[in-house]
């Protein structure tokens, strides 16, 4: 049944927060279902992400809106405003967790990371994970799942949430789109004389 599968795909897309497919909803029952599915999408679902202070304004997202009296005017004005919205596409801005009064704290040594596997650490108020890149650099990510807040477990090439199965790559990007996850925030890290330090509080 073509009609039914189209409506089904529409609803599926809504619930995964993707752009639904376009089609002519000629059947009144179809039309009613599109309406009701849409009306169940309460703006409450957006709460939190829109109310969050726009600390990321300094690093506008690639999907930042362009405003003005027309494209030329907007370009001339150079007004691009970061809406700070979450959405489920891969080019999302990754936040950086920088504590207001952070201090560098050693969480591992380079030798600990020699096997190339990501390594979990707890430092003060921060639960994080260290990742040793193939190019020899080290970076740190938050180890808190952005779906519901469980602590992630490390795999050799990914980070996995034990609660619902959300997964992230070692750069912190979500690997599946089933959950409304945003990329894991990065932490400031540095290597000093073989010691790996992160900026935490």
């Amino acid at each position: 049944m073509i009609r039914r599968s189209r409506t089904h795909r529409f609803v599926g897309a809504l619930l995964r927060d993707r752009r639904p497919p376009r089609f002519e909803a000629a059947d009144p029952e179809d039309a009613a279902m599109l309406r009701v599915a849409t009306s169940l999408q309460l703006e409450e679902r957006l709460r939190g992400e829109l109310d969050a202070p726009r600390r990321r304004a300094a690093q506008p997202s690639r999907r930042g809106f362009l405003i003005g009296g027309g494209v030329a005017a907007a370009a001339a004005a150079g007004v691009a405003v970061d809406l700070g919205l979450r959405h489920s596409e891969s080019d999302e801005t990754q936040g950086e967790l920088v504590p207001r009064a952070g201090a560098w704290q050693q969480v591992a040594t380079l030798a600990d990371l020699a096997d190339g596997r990501p390594r979990r650490f707890s430092a003060g108020s921060v639960e994080g994970v260290l990742v040793h890149g193939p190019d020899g650099t080290v970076h740190a990510l938050s180890a808190v799942c952005t779906h519901m807040g469980c602590l992630l477990q490390t795999r050799s090439d990914s980070l996995l949430c034990p609660c619902h199965g959300a997964a992230f790559d070692l750069g912190g990007q979500p690997l599946d789109r089933e959950y409304l996850t945003t990329p894991l925030p990065r932490l400031r890290s540095r290597v000093v004389g073989g010691r790996v330090e992160v900026l935490v509080v």
Binding site: R19, R45, G68, V81
Partner: peptide
């Protein structure tokens, strides 16, 4: 002035629109 207007209203308008199209990209 436009930027101030945009900032003042964008979140409310976005919410309004979201619950009438049902998905973030649209």
């Amino acid at each position: 002035g436009w930027e101030a207007l945009y900032r003042a209203h964008v979140v409310a308008i976005y919410r309004f629109v979201f619950s009438r199209c049902g998905n973030r990209p649209d």
